[in-house]
């Protein structure tokens, strides 16, 4: 084998290996230009006329459908649907979010019970996410503790199998998962997107800030795109933190504690536009 052929083979193998660190569906559902996504949480949001003037439609809505709250047994899994309406205009692509809250650190279940428990979590999730209107992407919001990671990984794997193949799977992540914590890649999670949330970081907040200031780039989880979750009420602080870095993001999710109005959503989009990467996301 010639040197150049072996090099090409090596490169191919590397690319192949990297692309299988985190498996993904083949059809990216969210358009490349949907770089700004507003999280519509429990509030009755109104994002009509949110796109800034002279700008093409550049945002989408990720709408919380409800919460799955899981206790220590199958019987204690509760599903709480969203009830509030959302107002939006034509810039909408349908992305469902389901929040998963696993309460116990560890489950005392045998393997059959655990299988049923996971199955129930998945059923609950699907009942919230899959409605009469099609969705392009399902995002799971779950702050899995260290002791819950195996369970969470199994849940995601089961969920991916049950989801129609054309629906992408996205997950939120703790900020710390994007800095040195490789568990997502190691667990081979079947996700197409990971969204670290750089807000309400609690005790880790100032340390994450130091990392940004020091120029450390957050992980892209082997997905070739860097995504951030930000909060409107902390945007100014975040922008100041990364002001002197070259950090860019391929997609930004925005959350507002008090919900969205046409005014604040427009302002938020304007503020984060400069953070977006000019290169096309993969």
């Amino acid at each position: 084998m010639t040197g150049s052929k072996s090099l090409k083979l090596l490169l191919f193998a590397l690319v192949f290996a990297v692309s299988h660190v985190v498996s993904a569906t083949t059809n990216p559902a969210l358009a490349a230009d949907e770089k700004i996504i507003l999280w519509s949480w429990f509030n009755a949001d109104d994002t009509c006329q949110s796109q800034p003037d002279n700008l093409d439609c550049a945002y989408a809505l990720a709408i919380l459908r409800g919460r799955v709250i899981a206790g220590d047994t199958i019987a204690r899994i509760v599903t709480v649907p969203r009830m509030a309406a959302v107002k939006h205009n034509h810039c909408l692509r349908d992305m469902a979010v389901v929040r998963l809250e696993i309460l116990p650190d560890r489950l005392d279940l045998n393997s059959t019970e655990l299988d049923l428990y996971i199955e129930r979590l998945v059923q609950s999730t699907l009942s919230l996410a899959l409605g009469s209107r099609p969705i392009q992407c399902l995002q799971i919001d779950c702050d899995a503790r260290l002791t819950q990671r195996d369970l969470y990984a199994r849940y995601l794997q089961t969920l991916r199998k049950r989801l129609p193949p054309q629906i992408e799977l996205s997950i939120t992540a703790l900020a710390s998962w994007a800095f040195g914590d490789r568990w997502i890649a190691k667990a081979n999670l079947p996700v197409d997107e990971v969204v670290p949330m750089y807000f309400s970081m609690g005790k880790t907040g100032s340390e994450i800030k130091h990392l940004f200031v020091a120029g450390k780039k957050p992980d892209d989880f082997g997905l070739g795109k860097r995504v951030a979750g930000l909060r409107l009420q902390e945007l100014t602080d975040f922008l100041a933190t990364i002001e002197h870095t070259s950090l860019e993001f391929d997609r930004i999710y925005l959350f507002s504690s008090n919900g969205w109005s046409p005014q604040n959503s427009r302002e938020a989009i304007k503020l984060v536009l400069p953070l977006l990467s000019r290169k096309k996301p993969q």
């Binding site: 009830m83 702050d143 503790r145 309400s200 609690g202 880790t204």
Partner: peptide
């Protein structure tokens, strides 16, 4: 009424949770 998520403050809904 059915304010089913009464007194829910979504700002606290993101972790980490203690």
């Amino acid at each position: 009424s059915s304010s089913l998520l009464t007194m829910c403050n979504p700002a606290l809904a993101c972790g980490p949770f203690d």
